[in-house]
Amino acid sequence: MRRFYLIALLAFLGPASGQPGPVYITPELQRLIQAGGQNYANVLLRQAPDQALCSIHRNRLPPEVLGSFIEEQRRLIKYPEGGRLMGDWKRGEAIYNTLARGNCFSCHVGSPLNIGGNVGPSLEKYGQRGTSEAVQRYTYEVIYNPWAYFPCTVMYRFGHGGLLKPEEIADVVAYLLDPSSDFNTKPALKR
């Protein structure tokens, strides 16, 4: 069975119909997905090559693909016009604490407004890391595209996935880093 998969996989690697990269969805899997209905199929069948790679390796990339994967993910990051990585923490607060926007509180402890979850690491008093250019850049990039740092992680690629605009991500960065932000001056809510 292993062998079969390997051969099938190799057959799909490389340029297929002008779109290079690995393909996870075999014709059989495609037929199954189509049986789930038009809307379902429309989203699943549009799987991107990086998503395919995470699927193939069940979210744990082997060393031989890791380097190029991370490089590619870094290339996908776009920055706000004007280059300011810290925006308005008040606007960032709303994004961070809204389920249908950032939903950050669901996975991270740190917000003084919502009880945090523990899927991701605690961000409590994140601002203690300072506001150096390097810290701002890291924070912005992790939110824009966590796969550039944590390949295949469950955290959404907010910028790349089109969930938040670069300026909105800068607002969230400010919420996390600005020393006067409630995130850093008020106690985090925990369960």
Binding site: Y24, I25, T26, L29, L32, I33, V43, L44, R46, Q47, Q51, A52, C54, S55, R58, N59, W147, C152, V154, Y156, R157, G161, G162, L163
Partner: peptide, 11 residues
């Protein structure tokens, strides 16, 4: 395979 498939704007 479907169980391990990643797709959509939230991967």
């Amino acid at each position: 395979k479907l169980f391990y498939l990643r797709a959509g704007p939230r991967d």
